[in-house]
């Protein structure tokens, strides 16, 4: 009986590992196909896929005969392309918008959360929940007027329109507040008795204590800004001046039909930033999801 159960468990373990690994292979296949094909030349791509017979020959056609970085170079220099890609501008825009938004969100959300949670603020809770309930109204209700406001401010086709409206969210403050509830209050009370002002306490005591949750908030702000598609495609009216995420759709229109490998190179370029970020901050990514779902684990 005992050995039977043990054998059963072993069987489950092995079959689960096998199944998960198999699915994992299928999981990465679309990305691998793109990576591999981006190293071909356009001619090699077209000729290869024009004449092959059967599955096995197709599998062989997928892999390039030699590593060729031409498609990546061409995307930046515009050599041999029918249109200019503006991918340098797009990359620059995306980086500026994401970094700026991250910095602003982290600073203003932590300041607000500190004020709501730690300062002597009798109506703070009322204000917070008031803003919170207003922010539950879906974004779509405010998109069109937001466009008009950006137009009034002269922000159409201006990176400001991508940076500032995205910083108004209140969910980040909610997360930081919840985290601050777990930070002991004794220290800032002691500092207060020693004569420290509120801002000094915030800067010297609270910010270091909040560091993990600020990382999480910052990362999610960065990803939100980087991955935004709907809003940039509306306010950035000039196709030459897009962010990478929204601009990729335009590139697809320009390169899609003929310059396949260059398009694939663009897709890979758009993947690199999030992946690198993930490599460095893996811990915070996973922690962030768990905190957002309020799962204690």
């Amino acid at each position: 009986m005992q050995s039977n159960m043990k054998r059963n468990k072993e069987l489950v373990r092995v079959s689960c590992t096998a199944a998960l690994s198999l699915i994992a292979i299928f999981w990465v296949i679309p990305v691998v196909w793109i990576i591999v094909n981006s190293f071909k030349t356009n001619v090699e791509f077209q000729v290869g896929y024009a004449n092959f017979k059967g599955r096995w020959e197709y599998l062989r056609t997928i892999f390039p005969k030699s590593l060729n970085f031409g498609s990546y170079v061409a995307v930046f220099t515009g050599e041999g392309l029918s249109t200019t890609t503006h991918i340098t501008t797009m990359l620059k825009n995306s980086v500026i918008v994401s970094v700026a938004r991250t910095a602003i969100v982290v600073v203003i959300s932590s300041l607000s959360a500190y004020a709501y949670e730690r300062l002597d603020f009798p109506v703070g809770d009322k204000i917070f929940w008031g803003l919170f309930y207003v922010s539950l109204i879906p974004n779509i209700a405010s998109t069109l007027p937001l466009f008009k406001i950006c137009n009034s401010l002269g922000w159409l086709n201006n990176l400001n329109a991508l940076i500032w409206p995205g910083c108004a969210g209140i969910m980040n403050i909610f997360l930081i507040r919840n985290f601050l509830k777990g930070v002991p209050k004794e220290m800032d009370e002691a500092a207060r008795i020693d004569g420290a002002g509120s801002f000094a306490i915030y800067r010297i005591l609270i910010v270091p204590a909040m560091k993990p949750v600020l990382m999480i908030v910052g990362l999610s702000a960065f990803r939100g800004a980087w991955n935004d598609y709907f809003w940039p495609s509306i306010v950035m009216t000039d196709p030459k001046n897009q962010t990478l995420t929204a601009g990729l759709a335009l590139l697809e229109n320009a390169l899609g039909g003929t310059q396949w490998t260059n398009m694939l190179a663009c897709i890979i370029i758009s993947m690199i930033f999030p992946f690198v970020l993930y490599l460095f901050c893996q811990k915070y990514f996973l922690k962030g999801i768990q905190i957002q779902a309020a799962v204690k684990g």
């Binding site: 600073v107 203003i108 959300s109 300041l111 607000s112 500190y114 004020a115 709501y116 300062l119 002597d120 603020f121 703070g124 204000i127 803003l131 207003v134 922010s135 109204i137 209700a141 405010s142 998109t143 069109l144 007027p145 937001l146 008009k148 406001i149 500032w164 409206p165 910083c167 108004a168 209140i170 403050i173 509120s198 915030y202």
Partner: peptide, 30 residues
Amino acid sequence: RQVEPYIFIAPHVLLFVVFSMVPIIYGIYA
């Protein structure tokens, strides 16, 4: 001490009013 908290939350509330509150009211009216 009384005024401080309002200054701390001011940047966020400012952004919220201009880019969230006003558009929502305007959008519902529109």
